[in-house]
Design a binder for these strands. Structure first.
Length: 702
RNA sequence: GGUGAUGUAGCUCAGCUGGUUAGAGCACAGGAUUCAUAAUCCUGGGGUCGUGGGUUCAAGUCCCACUUUCACCA
């Protein structure tokens, strides 16, 4: 066991976000989970370093930069700035946030490759791949599209069909085309470099059994072993944004080779920063080799999403082992985020970026708290239920926790000039202190939900104590001052302890409370101390406010609008996908948001409609009842939400456009047999459409 | 399709190696209270633990089948 004089030396990483998009609420699950774990261990007095970086290489980055007319270097520098700001505002405190496109990473990648080669783990093989003859480049599967060989759905990606779920090789696609240039790809031979993973099976089996993985993850590994391990293709042909392979002109490391090495590079940079002279083996503290040499005694933990377990549990330990480095102590995989029980969705407005959350909800600690309340050590998905989010934050943080200080500090400040006088032994205080170990164990085991349940149970005890003692009654009675002071002091001591327990999750709030209580920054061993009599606290200022459900609505609304305002042209990666081109399946929905086929469009039966009657609907705030002639025997009855903008009398006789084959819907005031089209956004509306002169009722719009 | 997970009160979740009338928070109802940016305290209603079989003296907890949702398939 580590002691105060001999702290554990721990290096922690989170997965590298791909420099191709913004950080969103899904990403944050991992960074918040990791950050809480790191902060907790730092509070315990251990020497913990938390590093991360942007994952910057690969074809998607190259092509996006080209499309934007900037260099890849400029693109990744912009993204790095954005990512850094997002993390910082969410209080994710990296010791270094770097980039895989860095000299340290290049050097490490090349040196590791050379060691693997010297160990006989590298081979070459000529393979045949699709090639874009217009762009003069080989195409990753994701950039080849065509007709599914099984169900003949159009515009499917090169590896799997979104419609029928079939998987296949890009060579099986019918009428394949390049998503980059549109040209028909040709097949072309090229020599690729492989890491001989097939030879690492025994090593990996042993490593897997050594307690490095969660049970579920180990099961998953077993499945992969059963299927047999294939060699890993680690090269890509120019043009490619990445590091060139030594002695292999025109060949580059596949992004997934140098990405995890980015963990090392980021740490190496941190070591250098700690050494002003630049001589990293001379100066204080951090020594790169102490953490990464084969016989390292330090601990190394990777927090990752379950989607990239394959890379971290197979390739990465094998790469480290056969290049003469230490292996990870443990790999912690977590599940994905769903919002309101479903995948994050752009059309529902639940695909929320970190920035958008900050713009609308403001306080990042609400999200940290909510995620922590949901997180456990398994790979299960966690759900962000927005209603639950509001209820939980308001009830737990404001109603229970902060309320303890809010309801007692006033007495101390007004009646005793901020001076405390706690009792010698309060049973509730003792019980709260007694939970320190249980809570610490839960944090260590990444069972944050369990930790917070316990903390909230303790907060209930504290509120019960206050209710039981009823200081407001004492305040009105003569001669009760001493007891009043004692009760409120004890409540604040309880509040101090709860703050300590919550500090890994709510570091900023804890800082403000330390100021309010006028105490030194809380570390875990401060459980053993107490607020002393004579100690003076500062004036209580309101610490946090409640979340308003309207803020949530505004956020989801804004994210819906964003989609319409700025449709992206590049294939949007799946909500959870952030790791380069191996992630090929863009969600059907995301794809839909960009383009629909002509077949989709013709499903909508648009007709010119003559408004033969329009009238107000009694009891309806927004609706007008329209009768629309579209050349049928009887006019259609349609309720349209345009009352705010139109006087019914002025509408009669006008021509407009309606959707004629929308499923009839029963509304409060009767059946609505279609929909009238109208334009609107924050600038105004609705404005109904009018056809040009000559159009007649019943004409089809196409 | 294969594989791994998952399905417990209206909502979000606990339930360790099988053992008394299945728990919590939120929401809801009633009461108390007024110190706190309506917070707090007490009480209560509410679940055939996805479905169907099986093992067992005893199953939410083990086994089998089906089914829901999610993920992965290099």
């Amino acid at each position: 066991m580590a002691t105060a004089n001999n702290p554990r030396k721990i290096l922690v990483t989170s997965a590298l976000p791909y420099a191709n998009g913004s950080i969103h609420l899904g990403h944050l699950v991992e960074y918040i989970q990791t950050d809480i774990w790191v902060r907790f261990h730092k509070m315990q007095g251990h020497q913990v370093h938390y590093v991360c970086a942007d994952d910057t290489h690969g074809t998607p980055i190259m092509l996006r930069a080209e499309k934007e007319g900037i260099t890849p270097e400029t693109l990744i520098a912009n993204v790095h700035k954005e990512h850094s700001a997002d993390f910082s505002e969410f209080l994710v405190q990296f010791d270094n946030y770097y980039s895989t496109n860095a000299p340290e990473n290049k050097e490490l990648s090349q040196s590791i490759y050379k060691k693997l080669k010297a160990a006989g783990k590298i081979s070459t093989k000529t393979i045949e791949q699709f090639y874009d003859p217009v762009k003069n480049m080989f195409l990753p599967d994701r950039f080849i599209k065509g007709e599914c060989p099984k169900c003949h759905a159009k515009d499917q990606y090169g590896d799997s069909c979104e419609v029928c779920g079939a998987t296949y090789n890009p060579t099986e696609l019918i009428n394949a085309y390049s998503a980059v240039s549109g040209a028909a790809p040709v097949r072309k031979e090229t020599e690729h470099y492989f890491f001989k993973l097939s030879e690492c099976e025994q090593f990996l089996k042993d490593w897997t059994r050594s307690g490095t993985l969660q049970g579920e993850a180990a099961n998953k590994m077993g499945e992969w072993f059963e299927n047999g391990l294939n060699d890993w293709d680690i090269s890509r042909d120019a043009p490619y944004f990445g590091f060139e392979i030594p002695d292999a002109p025109g060949k580059y490391f596949y992004v997934w080779l140098d990405a995890p090495i980015g963990y090392m590079a980021s740490f190496k940079k941190l070591c250098a920063e700690n050494h002003p002279s630049g001589d990293e083996n001379q100066k204080s503290g951090l020594n790169f080799d102490e953490y990464w040499a084969k016989d390292s005694q330090t601990e190394l933990y990777h927090f990752i999403g379950k989607d990239i377990l394959y890379f971290h549990a197979l390739f990465w330990p094998a790469t480290l082992e056969f290049s003469g480095h230490r292996k990870p102590t443990q790999i912690f995989a977590h599940g994905f985020l769903t919002v309101n029980g479903e995948k994050m969705s752009k059309s529902r407005g639940t695909f929320v970026t970190a920035r958008s959350y900050l713009d609308h909800i403001k306080n990042p600690e609400y999200l940290r708290y909510y995620y922590a309340a949901k997180l456990n050590s398994t790979m299960e998905d966690i759900d962000l239920n927005l209603e639950d989010f509001v209820a939980r934050v308001n009830s737990d943080l404001v109603g229970k926790y902060i309320n303890i200080a809010s309801r007692t500090a006033g007495f101390i400040n007004k009646r005793f000039e901020g001076q405390l006088n706690p009792s010698a032994n309060n049973t509730v205080v003792s019980e709260i202190k007694a939970s320190a170990n249980v809570i610490a164990e839960s944090y260590t085991a990444r069972e944050y939900g369990k930790a917070l349940r316990e903390i909230m149970r303790l907060a209930d005890l504290a509120n019960g104590f206050v209710a039981d003692k009823a200081p407001w009654v004492m305040a009105k009675q003569e001669g009760q001052d001493a007891v009043l002071q004692e009760v409120c002091s004890d409540a604040l001591e309880m509040f101090r302890l709860l703050t300590l327990y919550l500090k890994p999750v709510l570091p900023k709030l804890a800082g403000e409370i330390e100021q309010f209580l006028n105490i030194a920054p809380l570390s875990w061993d401060a459980v053993a101390t107490s607020l002393l009599s004579q100690h003076r606290i500062n004036a209580y200022e309101h610490l946090i406010t409640r979340v308003d459900g309207k803020q949530i609505e505004a956020m989801t609304e804004a994210n819906k609008e964003n989609l319409q305002a700025t449709p992206t042209l590049t294939p949007a990666p799946h909500s959870q996908q952030r790791h380069a081109e191996h992630q090929q399946a863009a969600s059907a929905e995301a794809a839909e948001a960009e383009y629909i086929s002509i077949d989709d469009f013709t499903k909508v039966d648009l007709r010119i409609a003559k408004i033969v009657n329009a009238e107000h609907v009694e009891g309806a705030e927004k609706l007008l009842k329209l009768s629309l002639d579209i050349g049928e025997d009887k006019p259609r009855q349609v309720f349209a939400g345009i009352k705010s903008a139109y006087d019914p009398a002025t509408l009669i006789g006008r021509l407009t456009v309606m959707v004629a084959n929308l499923a009839p819907r029963k509304m409060k005031f009767g059946m609505s047999e279609g929909m009238v089209l109208a334009a609107s956004d924050e600038r105004g509306g609705p404005f109904i459409l009018s056809p040009d002169v000559g159009a007649a009722a019943g004409m089809k719009v196409k």
